[in-house]
Structure formats: C-alpha cells, structure tokens
Design a protein around this nucleic acid. Structure first.
Lengths: 163, 163
DNA sequence: TATTGTTATACTCTATAACTATA
DNA sequence: TATAGTTATAGAGTATAACAATA
C-alpha cells in the first residue's frame, strides 16, 4: 500500500529450471520418453503379472517354439546369466516349459504352454491399447517414420560397436 | 552320393528367431534403440568420469546456477533420495559447490565450479560427436521429426499419468 | 576346445519409508 | 503442518568371471 514495491531479494534462487541445452540432445529426449513409456507399460502389464522383460521373452517363445535360452538372450540383447531368472519366473508360473533339447543335451528347449499363449494374447491386447494411447498425437506417417528413425539409429550405433 | 537327400531331422530346433510380433511395437524398438544409445553414451562419457545422470545434472547446474537439489531432481524426473548420491559425486570431484541457500536454510544451492564448467564443455563436445555419429543416417528433417515425435509421446503419457 | 546353462557377484538406476532441520 | 535434504533399504536391470555338463 504505502510501501515501496518489493525490492528484488538478494538471493540467487532459481524460479524456472531451463533445460534448453539438454533438450537439443536426442539422447536426453529419448531417455525422458523411454522412462514414461516404460512406466506406462509396466503399469499395463502389471495385471498379468508380467514385466517388460518377461513379456518380451514370452512373445518370443510363443512365436518361436523350441528356441534355446541363448537364442532368446541374443534376440533380446541381454546376457545369458540374466536370462536365467526371466525364464525361471515364466516356468514357475507354468507359462512355458523348459526341457533339455533332444538334438543337443546342453540346450534348453523353450515352449509356451496353453496358459502361456492365452496370457500372451491377453497381454498383447492390453499392450496394443497402451500403444494406441501413446501414439494418439501421431498419424500413420509419423509413426512409421519414428520406428524407421529408431531402427536406423540402432543400426548406426550397433555397427559402430561391432566395427 | 548314392544316398537319399537328408531327411529333415526330427528336431524342433529354431534356426532363426523371429521377432516380427515385437518389431511392430514402438515400445520394444524404443528399448532396443535406447539400450545401444545408452551404451554408446556411457562409453562417450567414461573418459570424463561422468555417467548419464551425473552429466545431465552437471549441465543443469551449469545452466541454472543456484538451483536446489529438489528442483534438479524434478527437472531430471528422479526421486530426491537418488539425487543425493549424484550431487555427492559431483561435489566430491569439486565440479560443483553445495551450500546452504541464504533465502532458505533447508535448501542446498548448487553451483558449478570453474572446473565443472570446463569439464562440462569438454563433455558437451564429445556428446555432440556421439550424437552426430548416431544420427548419421538421418537428415535434418528426419531428426527434427524424431525429436518432435518423442516429445509428443512423452506428453501423451505424462498427461495420462497425471489426469 | 568351445558352447549351454548356471551360480555368484557387483554396480547402476529406481522407489519408498522415516528421520532432521528448517519453514 | 509442510518442505528440503538425508539415510537406509529393497527391487529391477545389467555386466563379468567361473563352473559343470555336453558338444
């Protein structure tokens, strides 16, 4: 009222955090996007007792009956030791069977059970809904270009690591 | 020679793993791409003794001198308890200072040191090179559309989680 | 010798509860 | 009472070395 307007306080408080420098980096944006994506997908799969890794493994076993753990690990790009507990958890729930392969007694032949295939189908529906929700702001073209761009980047970096 | 052509072996061995079902899912492709991206970025930052989290935190502190840990945690979308060790490691290397703020004695005011700013600049150069390497297969348009698409997805899902 | 699956182990990232000191 | 930072803790994901069984 009768006072002077408040003088700017002699603090160095930050009122708005600028992440301009970071926003320019694809890697940072990819991390942010992947984080919310993973959170939403985790929530989507929770009712089925599945996680991203177990869901992915289940699909691959359903689509490729008889594959070995090492093939599964390579396809999912995770280390064999880490595959063990993923397969453990699917087997424990009777979603897959894990039998010594007759063509190579070192290998485990993985196959989905009937229950495993049914659960996978149900989860697929939920995941489809999750993807639809996620891609709401993108038209068909934009979606295709996105997946293309991601594949190109994956190849660029995978090539670099190999060569 | 005089034998019949080899009869198909009665095994159920899988010679090629099909991930067709998965490739359709953006989430799966995003995970694959993010994984190679993160591996490459980790390697890129290793010479500077930085990781993705510490690098990101350092940039934000450089660009926003005086911000609090809680603001930093919110900007990076990680929990405050997890922020502590990130800031610890930056402070231990004298890349930042962590002082009680004069406007609120509960808060830590974070500022980059000269060494911190210099290291950040050098790391920025290396990360720029990493991004260039990564985006080799994409023209300017494709890069912009990619970052746009990622931002749209982030917003779609963040909105969903909030509302 | 090389490979498959396994165990043990360790490190990073993430998430929650509870404490302290300040507001 | 609410918030900022902290501690302790636990769960996932990821990575490597080493072993037994098998090829």
């Amino acid at each position: 009222m009768s006072e002077f307007p408040p003088t700017p306080q002699s603090t160095d408080a930050v009122d708005h955090v600028s992440d301009e420098t970071l926003r320019k980096l694809i890697g940072y944006q990819m991390k942010r996007t992947f984080n919310v994506l993973q959170a939403d997908l985790t929530e989507t799969l929770e009712p089925f007792g599945l996680r991203m890794l177990t869901y992915t493994a289940l699909i691959l076993i359903v689509d490729n009956p008889g594959l070995r753990q090492s093939q599964l690990a390579e396809a999912m790009d995770i280390e064999r030791p880490n595959m063990v507990i993923v397969v453990d958890s699917l087997e424990r729930r009777n979603l897959i069977t894990r039998n010594t392969a007759d063509y190579d007694r070192r290998a485990n032949s993985l196959k989905a059970t009937f229950a495993g295939r049914k659960l996978c189908e149900m989860a697929n529906e939920a995941v489809k809904a999750h993807e639809t929700r996620m891609l709401l702001g993108l038209d068909e073209n934009a979606r295709n270009r996105l997946i293309e761009a991601l594949q190109i980047i994956e190849k660029s970096l995978a090539k670099k690591l190999t060569g």
